[in-house]
Design a protein around this nucleic acid. Structure first.
Lengths: 205, 205, 205, 205
DNA sequence: GATGAATGAGACTTCATTCAT
DNA sequence: TATGAATGAAGTCTCATTCAT
């Protein structure tokens, strides 16, 4: 087994275990069993349990933002952009629920130092996306609000729905709510929500 | 120290410790030190760590819903009702951030059996509130949507904002966003959001 | 509930619990639940857990020996006497299996001081029975052997069978073996085992 | 210290501690001190306290039966066979009193699942020995009795004597009773006990 | 006598981590 | 690099016993 294989086997085993039991409750022994690696090997590659979580976290977060950025980049107007964010967000979650669960549950399990790194990384990603929307703010298409409200207004409902779905509390598939959640975000964020002829189903015409 | 005192001393100490370190990471020893109770006493009253969490959870949840129900009851129209829910939600969180943090973080720390009890209890509370809104659905004032979307649309943004605030990620006071979040919810849920002359600042005139 | 009732309720509850879980593993809480007495009450009556075991032990042992002595007293010849001991032994065990289990399992659970008291008490009982047999030793009807062998030869097989039965390892009813075990003892202990026309079935003719 | 050394150091320390205090009362800490192993090491090798007891039990029992079978195999007639069993039994006990004490005291300290395993293993050993005796049953040299009685009649007295000796209740050396106990068993089990010219002292002539 | 809350020592066990092979 | 035995701190929980009411 190559180094890369070994490392990724450990990572994916860890993700599964973290989601099943929670990061705290997951033991190295659990990970060892599932990954077929030895204790020593795990420590050799990741240093300690937190090292695994950190690697996983970074990997998941980068993957998420890359997806978001790629899709937003193609939006030709504000409404499409908002739709892209909402739908990408939900699709990403539905496609990799375990990683989503892991990301949303982080809390204090990651060390303070790593937490800072993550926050900065996230802020960077966020800024890039924001940059894309900037022109529409300038043009008055999107409302000016306290910066802290954009995240909640844009993705709060999606996030809440996703949490319920990930927690197994509902059977409803989040993807079926994309249009509703996306237009809700649009209605909330647009200066003039009525001005739209957009059909989300065919954003490429 | 009376029985009641002892029990509630343990409960409030636990809440503090749970919030500082997380439920998993909090040790009985931490709780013992902060509550000035003996280990035996803690187990005498709550059985085990989960017993404490369960008691705390029930207490917090009931208090939350009671507040919501009380304030919704006074709403004379749909918009007021929605405003009442959003503002009560945020106020409750700001007033008892520790309990809010605890409630939002529950995850797997509470046993399956207790989880069911909680879920039913929550469903009951939810239904009561929903009952209050029913007439406005019938009158066509509020939109008919898949039931799973009401929670996210109504409180998703508030919840997301609150999470950020509770996590210390923003300085912005959630209470300053009440009007914005509440009108966002209204715009999303109302059949005809324009039809309103309401000024939330003085809902009682 | 009178004192006597309370005490004996505690004793019989304890016997049951001791047999189910073993003396060490039985907790005061177990006894409390089964006896419907309070912890304080148990301590008031017996001082501590060992006090309960000691009381139970004394009660059981005295009852056993009293039965043995009563039945041996009626024996008109050596063979009848031996038969009486063997059959009484087995009958007593079958009639109160829990007490038998408890008595046989004592081991170190009873304190050293109490152990001495028990040993002396037992020795006294034993001597009384031995006294009854003495004439037959003098007449040469019973063999003279090292004193340590009488117990094993007389009751060893019965005891072994009883242990197996009490442990649930066999279905065979020990009472069905009385004649065989009793004649085995006789053959072993009698100087001239052949000299007998006894029918155990009717020892009173 | 090699793996094997460590494991057997733990086993022999455990045997000593179990005998001194009883299985229940023996603590892992006691075993750790005596074996010079760490707590973690003990658990690494045996899983838990019961695991140690189980390993010890299996080891002791197999050793006992192997001894019995070896010696019985050499017997050229029924009387020699019975003598071999009785004397081997007592010798084994006298040679390793701690293991004997441990084996006789097992009771509920070993789990139900392991208990079954043990019972089957014992039954297997027992059957092998029984097989050796079979011809003499067919020839009518040994009496036909309910199967449950053979154990008690053959070894009951020896066992009872051994228990007393192991418990420190007598000074008498069980080995001095071999001939008496063995001939008692013979007299009980033989169809015609008189037919013998055997001198146990020289079974090989 | 009866009650049960309170105590705290101590038991078992888990687990992250180290390190010799 | 890989392995897994070894370590020991720390956690959860039990339990006999005390004592104020």
């Amino acid at each position: 087994m190559t180094q890369v294989d070994r490392k990724s086997a450990i990572l994916s085993a860890s993700l599964a275990v973290f989601c099943e039991k929670g990061i705290e409750a997951a033991s190295i022994e659990d990970i060892r069993q599932r990954s077929q690696a030895s204790v020593g090997s795990i420590y050799h590659h990741f240093g300690n349990k937190e090292g695994i979580a950190a690697a996983l976290f970074t990997q998941g977060l980068d993957n998420y933002w890359q997806q978001i950025k790629t899709n937003v980049a193609q939006a030709s107007n504000a409404e499409f952009a908002i739709h892209a964010i909402v739908s990408t967000h939900l699709q990403w979650i539905v496609e990799q629920p375990d990683m989503a669960r892991f990301l949303f549950a982080r809390r204090q399990a990651v060390s303070a130092e790593h937490d800072d790194a993550i926050r900065q990384r996230t802020a960077g990603h966020f800024k890039e996306v924001f940059e894309k929307l900037k022109p529409w703010f300038k043009q008055g298409v999107l409302r000016r609000l306290p910066i802290e409200l954009y995240g909640p207004l844009l993705l709060g409902p999606s996030q809440e729905l996703a949490r319920n779905w990930l927690g197994g509390r509902i059977g409803f598939n989040p993807l079926d709510a994309i249009d509703e959640l996306s237009s809700a975000a649009w209605r909330t964020l647009a200066t003039n929500p009525a001005h739209t002829g957009t059909s989300y189903g065919a954003p490429k015409r």
